[in-house]
Simulated assay, not measured.
Amino acid sequence: MKINKLENWNLQESNPLIIAGPCSVETPQQLEKTVEVLVNNGIRIIRGGVWKPRTRPNSFEGVGSPALSWIRDIKSKYGVKFAIEVASPQHVEEALQAGMDILWIGARSTVNPFTVQEIANSLKGVDIPILVKNPVNPDLALWIGALERIHHAGIDKLGAIHRGFSNFNDEIFRNSPTWQIPLELRTRYPELPLINDPSHICGRRDLISQISQMALDLNFDGLMIESHIDPENAWSDAAQQLTPYALSELLNTLETRFPTTDNPVLESQLEVIRQHIDDVDRDLLEMLSRRMRLVEKAGIYKKKNNVAIFQMERWKKVFESRQEWAKSLQVNPEFIKELFNLIHTESIKKQEEIISNKEKWEDRTMD
């Protein structure tokens, strides 16, 4: 994809890009009070939900089209740019007629290629930034597919929003950050602007600061943060919205990092450390190769003695002991848990191959 760089989007915004505003546009008064304080604190790009796709049918689903006239008045009075979510060609048409400056496609829309294609078709000939949130589930290919569909419609002011992924096992965040997925997207498309949405990742305002800083540490291009003049009484997502004052305080505490360094001494030191990392990675791969050869031997024994591949007691012992070893070595046990789940899955596949393909393994020696 050939993407127009963020600095060419004419947003007149500082680095990193900051988009802030209420989860939902509720009333003209709520919108103006929120925007007034945001503008006084330097925010020039406002977000606000007009149409809200909700999980339950009786939840507040946004004011809808009437909110667009309120937004027009706010844009005229305060000179701000405005971003809203669209989920259909009709939304796109109304948003463009109302003079919206940025459109984004939400996580629930991104999961459906038919919906994304319909939106893409309605965007042909449009020259404003279009942002695509990651799908609800951790599926990088689906995210890339949505971005490609929008790009094929002729949109080159294209960006991605990382809002986290559904994970019922996550007891901390509303949506797990799963940082490796947006970082893989950045690796494949380095020119694609990448914006973090800490509000939807956290689901709680007290966690927003740490996720925002993490995103900047990982060289994200910007943040989209929900802000409401009276969060406790917000009509949607009250727990994750900050007051404009709290948002200003948060932004003042965040630190931006340089993607590279011109310091030759520092660069030399980093290069030495990176070489050590490369050496350790090679050792790790050699140890994994050795482990898989042992898995193969165990699989052959099981095949010859008609023993089931999966041994519950053995796996339980491995699963528990490796996390204990990790603690003693000051390695994150949750990381080791995920790592050994992957190793175990690959081990099962390897032994299944042995069981199902006798000829390939019957001549293997056990030494």
Rank of each mutant, 00 (worst) to 15 (best):
V295N: 05
S268F: 08
V295M: 06
L266R: 05
T260R: 09
D281L: 14
E296I: 02
F258H: 15
L294P: 01
D281G: 00
I273H: 06
N263F: 00
D262G: 05
R282V: 07
R257F: 12
I277C: 01
A298K: 14
I273M: 01
D281N: 05
L294Q: 15
A308M: 09
L288A: 11
R274M: 08
I277F: 02
D283F: 14
P259K: 03
R290G: 10
F258P: 08
D279N: 10
L294K: 11
E271P: 02
Q275I: 07
R291C: 13
R274L: 06
D279L: 14
I300D: 00
D279A: 07
P259Q: 03
N306C: 02
R282F: 11
K302Y: 02
K304S: 04
E271G: 02
L270E: 04
R282M: 11
G299Q: 10
D283M: 11
N263I: 05
R290P: 03
L288H: 00
K297I: 14
V307R: 04
Y301M: 12
I277N: 00
L270W: 01
I277K: 05
D281V: 10
V272T: 14
G299T: 08
P264K: 05
M292K: 11
T261V: 15
P264I: 03
K303A: 15
S289L: 09
N263M: 03
L288T: 12
M292I: 03
L266T: 10
R293C: 09
Q269P: 00
L288F: 00
K297E: 14
R290C: 12
L288C: 05
A308C: 08
K302E: 04
T261L: 09
K303F: 15
D262Q: 15
I273N: 00
A308H: 14
K297T: 06
E271V: 01
S268V: 04
V265N: 05
D283V: 10
N305K: 01
Q269I: 10
N306T: 04
S268K: 11
N305G: 07
R282Q: 06
L285N: 02
T260K: 12
L284F: 07
L285M: 14
A308E: 14
H276G: 08
Q269E: 14
V265I: 10
P259C: 05
